[in-house]
Design a protein around this nucleic acid. Sequence first.
DNA 1: AACTGGGACAACCGCTCAGAT
DNA 2: AATCTGAGCGGTTGTCCCAGT
Length: 258
Amino acid sequence: MSRSANEINKGAWSREEDETLTNYVTLHGEGKWQKVAQNAGLQRCGKSCRQRWLNYLKPGIKRGDISVDEEDMIIRLHHLLGNRWALIAKRLPGRTDNEIKNYWNTNLSKKLQTRPTAWSPPPAASAKHHSKYAEEKAKHNNIVTLEAPRPTRAKAVYYGSDHKRSSPSSPNQMEGDDDASDLNFLIDDIDQNQLLIPEPPLENIEDQNTNKVELHNNSSSSSSDFHQLLPEIMFDPLDSFLDVELKRVASFLGLEDL
DNA sequence: AACTGGGACAACCGCTCAGAT
DNA sequence: AATCTGAGCGGTTGTCCCAGT
């Protein structure tokens, strides 16, 4: 099928297209993506150029497996922010919202939805790692399934009335220039190191009377390669202290849709 | 070796918002 | 004030690849 001169190209980007776009943006800078597409001679819509640049070509974009630390961070930020992928991405240098969204949808959402054990797979537990995943899972298959309501606890979210950005002059007036800055004051105070959980191998013991799930260090085998997702940070977003507090602050700030 | 199903990820699409005119 | 345009965001789809049969 022949392609007319002004037909828009769709689908995967070729190496030549990538080079053309990279050269043009390097020379002229970002922005005015409609003109980028025209002036660079790309048979692409401006939107496609922008997305290709921001998600793939832009210098500093990190490719490859999501690390354990990054995964932990994504999980915790998702608890805080929900599907605000762009906001989450801003806390993970080099990662794009699209990449995080994909990673969440293909890995984490299922993992956390089923959450059959307290054990969590290694980073980027994709098909490539399935055998390792299965092997480690087998080691842990004597762990009690977490059916009981989980303790809800926020470990590292601090904010207060004296925060320099927590008292805007009016509820709808924020200093920031976008959503990110609106919310950053909520999460800037998080010591990100505290979001990362150390990894003693743990065994769940469910107390039938209290429905509490306790974690016991059962470190006969060393599995320091893997991090443990402690149930205590798997809070129910509708029921947790954190959520209540976030809603309270969001309400005060007129950010009801948080 | 061929087929198939599922995972991973790039890209598209629709919508919203902000700034310019 | 209304309209237009560019940019950004999140949901969804399409395609490729790989492991299992």
